[in-house]
Design a binder for these strands. Structure first.
Lengths: 218, 218
DNA sequence: AATTTAATTTGTCATTCGATAAATAAGCAA
DNA sequence: TTGCTTATTTATCGAATGACAAATTAAATT
């Protein structure tokens, strides 16, 4: 159980975390705290959760809103995986397969209580990073899906129409809202996430084929 | 422009609203206020919007949380229309038609900034009325849709399976999330609500037919 | 061990919060 | 008008809030 504090001739293990590591620890716990209590909750409540006094927070963050910005950054930016887009664009596999894989890994990243609640809280606050996230989803996920679909259906490679993007959004939103029901409202019925995703994609692909093959509609 | 205050031999028009009418006016403005600012916002801010002083609120409502309960009631309960369910069950029309009509009138009722924001705020607070609303949607909308679908597809009339309800939830949630994007995130692309709904229902019906005709899957 | 540096706490501030009591103003009935 | 009732404001309480300065403790360095 016990480990030597340090090997011979090595620098002694610091008893404290580095300033940066401690800061990160504060941010991680702040994610949990604000996700549960909302961003209006007090810095004293957070300090209590951290086991420190409230003024200490101001040693690590200039203000409450700076701390909140770091929380946003840790949740929105750092949990986004760049490999998601190439996964969707891998034409060696049928699009339905790619969609199933993608939505399983994507929801593995975002279907947790902290992420979901922070997303909803920040959306209600109307913060800019929320808007940027929605644009990221559109550009890196939804529009690539439409481009891949046109290729798979043998249709000409023209840019997606707005109402087509909207159609992908509805599928995406349906899956997303399943996560909201599961993790926020705790009212999901089936917890078989893979099955829910597979069914949503089946309907989406069927609907998309109908939709894309009606060129006379705007 | 000017009107006589009262006709002869009629009781004089009261210069003040009745106590109950004033109370209702306060509730209606409180809906706007809390929808925009969140339930954590101060009673002083609300009083300012009402053009009265803050202690006056305590003449009409015993406490802030009582006022909030009245807001919930006005939004969740009083805006629910009982005729929605019979509309879905009207077998003289094809189910896809009924779904289109229903989702157009349903979204007319709930796709407004106040309703949406109050729903999201209360969901994050985990209040009981939110849970009850989700059950209402399931029992009065989603399960009836599944029953009607089985009839239309000529399938035996057995109770809906959980994963089937989940499938309807995903369609419902996709449409709902379109409203969230439009009214909360203000990131909706197309504002042609009817079209978005029609496309969602096309995909849903196609997917549902596939799903219900695979009896060997649980 | 002595000294320096960084981490943390104590104490406190001005402001804002929900709520109450008492004073005032406005409408109504006689 | 006069008196009564209700509506509204003024003044205030205690608690909680974000933030700051100074004092204290603990670790690291010499």
């Amino acid at each position: 159980m016990t480990q030597p504090d340090t090997a011979p001739n090595e620098p002694p293990k610091p008893k404290r975390l580095s300033s940066e590591a401690r800061r990160q620890d504060f941010i991680n716990q702040a994610i949990e705290f604000f996700a549960e209590e909302g961003f209006e909750s007090s810095t004293r409540g957070l300090a209590k959760k951290l086991g420190v006094t409230q003024p200490l927070l101001y040693r690590y963050f200039p203000s409450k809103s700076d701390l909140i910005s770091e929380v946003y950054d840790a949740v929105y930016v750092k949990r986004w995986q760049p490999e998601w887009e190439p996964l969707l664009r891998d034409r060696s596999r049928p699009l339905a397969d790619r969609l199933n894989t993608f939505y399983n890994v994507y929801t593995n990243a975002i279907f947790n209580r902290e992420w979901m609640r922070i997303f909803l809280f920040s959306g209600l606050k109307g913060v800019d990073i929320n808007r940027r996230y929605m644009q990221l989803v559109r550009q890196r996920i939804l529009e690539p899906i439409l481009i891949e679909a046109r290729v798979e259906f043998g249709l000409p490679d023209i840019p997606p129409k707005d109402c087509e993007v909207e159609f992908v959004w509805v599928m995406h939103g349906g899956i997303f809202y399943y996560g909201v029901r599961d993790l926020i409202y705790e009212s999901a019925i089936s917890t078989d996430k893979e099955r829910v995703i597979a069914d949503a994609i089946t309907a989406f692909m069927a609907g998309l084929e109908i939709k894309l093959n009606r060129p006379y509609q705007t």
